[in-house]
């Protein structure tokens, strides 16, 4: 995938009320929006790649170009050697897709029948179909609702069916656009386990977008952060953490109120200290060892308790988004 770009035309309406209605009918108020600007990346076989980015960043648009739904304005996409928007059918055989917002299955049809129809569409042979179906039924616990129509399933059940449907034909790459949106913890967990298991077992490549950082932490071997259609980070989650996580926070609860200041000359100006009654809060860079600090503090005070906080992945992502937000404003 190289220099991928996509422009959209959007309709904007400035007037309200009757004026707005008239304006809708008469004026042509089209405006060009660059949803994806110059993305380039490559994904290796078997990877689980997490797409991150604030709402409207261009994640879904990128996925839609990779699946062949949208034709890029400029640039090229290639998936398993096929240009998706030119050879849609050939591409479709290799891929599976789940859009969290909308089911791909038939609304009024029992789940079982939907699967059978997909078997016909994807030309899955009987043996593979049987094997996959029983395997997924067990992994995703679908036994109890397989005979019901999608319309009568809860969101969690529906998402599990969609997931199974996407993997039914042993696709080599699966796109999951917010597969955990609106789900409770247990459903999320089940879905994560499933993705992990199938990735290991089948070596399927998985590209997923999500706003749930624990999805990313537990699944993704690589993250790509997109904001305003630009890529701002591409690498492992550990690297991301290292890059943006700059400090650790040590909180000491002391037996008595503090009566003397700490001598921190050894750390020069790298650490900051905050004293409040019986609490001592020290912020220090990640790369400085904390053992030494703990030893030093415990030798100076009578310490009741110690708490060590790392910046959570949520905080890091928020920081990343903030930074690109500032860039956007200054543009």
């Amino acid at each position: 995938m190289k220099n991928l770009q996509k422009d959209f035309y959007v309709n904007e309406s400035k007037e309200m009320g009757v004026k707005g209605i008239l304006e809708n009918l008469i004026k042509k108020n089209r405006k060009k929006v660059k949803a994806v600007k110059n993305l380039s990346f490559e994904i290796a076989e078997g990877e689980i790649v997490g797409f991150l980015g604030p709402n409207g960043a261009g994640k879904s648009t990128t996925i839609k170009m990779m699946t062949g739904i949208l034709t890029p304005t400029r640039g090229e996409v290639k998936v398993c050697g096929v240009i998706p928007y030119q050879k849609r059918q050939q591409n479709a055989k290799n891929i599976g897709v789940v859009f969290g917002h909308r089911t791909q299955l038939w609304w009024d049809l029992p789940v079982k029948d939907s699967f059978l129809l997909l078997k016909k569409i994807y030309e899955i042979d009987d043996l593979t179909y049987k094997k996959n179906l029983s395997y997924f039924m067990e992994l995703l616990d679908m036994e109890s609702f397989i005979e019901r129509p999608i319309r009568q399933l809860s969101l969690g059940q529906r998402m599990r069916c969609d997931l199974a449907a996407a993997f039914l034909h042993n696709p080599s790459i699966v796109y999951l656009d917010e597969p955990t949106i609106g789900l409770d913890i247990t459903s999320k967990k089940k879905i994560r386990e499933f993705i992990c298991e199938v990735n290991k077992e089948r070596k399927s490549t998985i590209v997923l977008t999500t706003h749930d950082m624990s999805d990313i932490e537990q699944l993704a071997t690589r993250v790509i952060v997109i904001a305003n259609g630009d890529m701002i980070y591409d690498g492992t989650i550990e690297q991301l953490r290292r890059q943006y996580q700059n400090e650790r926070v040590l909180t000491f609860s002391l037996k008595e109120d503090i009566n003397k200041y700490l001598d921190l000359r050894e750390w020069k100006h790298k650490v900051t200290v905050n004293y409040t009654n019986d609490k001592l809060v020290i912020r220090m860079p990640v790369n400085t060892p904390i053992k030494q600090m703990i030893d030093w503090v415990t030798s100076q005070y009578v310490v009741k308790d110690i708490k060590i906080d790392e910046t959570s992945i949520e905080d890091i992502i928020e920081e990343v988004y903030k930074q690109c937000g500032n860039q956007y404003i200054s543009m």
């Binding site: 479709a92 055989k93 909308r102 569409i121 994807y122």
Partner: peptide, 13 residues
């Protein structure tokens, strides 16, 4: 947007 589903299936849209 429900056309998306047809576009990702391996048969004539």
């Amino acid at each position: 947007g429900s056309l998306d589903g047809y576009l990702t299936k391996p048969a004539n849209t």
